[in-house]
């Protein structure tokens, strides 16, 4: 598979072209990157992209609490994570940093509060 992506490691914004094998997760060819960090970024983006997820969760009894993943989760699981978070409720006394959902979808990432309820 071929992909073109814009590197976000630094403001230079290199346009990197990657040819890779989706099945074996091997990079066949990469052009356009100006540095090593760009190469690593492009590799991760093609082979196993991850993202921080930020959203809100209902507080028991009313109101919304902003939350985030404490570590990035696989990009392909973002909508599944949203479903799980939208079914959950945070306690009324939740504080910044409290774990609201541990190990969401077995990713090893916790959903934590980013404000006091």
């Amino acid at each position: 598979m071929n992909r073109k992506l814009i590197c976000i490691v630094c403001p230079k914004g290199c346009e990197i072209s990657v040819e890779y094998n989706e099945a074996t997760k091997e990079i066949i060819k990469m052009t356009g990157q100006a540095c090593r960090r760009g190469e690593e970024y492009a590799r991760a983006e093609c082979i196993s992209p991850t993202r921080m997820l930020t959203t809100t969760v209902r507080i028991k009894g009313g109101g919304l609490l902003p939350v985030r993943t404490d570590k990035p989760v696989p990009r392909g699981l973002m909508f599944e994570c949203m479903k799980a978070i939208n079914r959950a409720e945070a306690p009324r006394d939740a504080k910044v940093g409290d774990v609201i959902i541990p190990n969401i979808l077995g990713t090893g990432s916790d959903i934590i509060a980013t404000a006091n309820a």
Partner: peptide, 10 residues
């Protein structure tokens, strides 16, 4: 470190 808006404000 990378924070959200509410954490940064906090």
């Amino acid at each position: 470190e990378e924070l959200t808006g509410p954490e940064f404000a906090y």
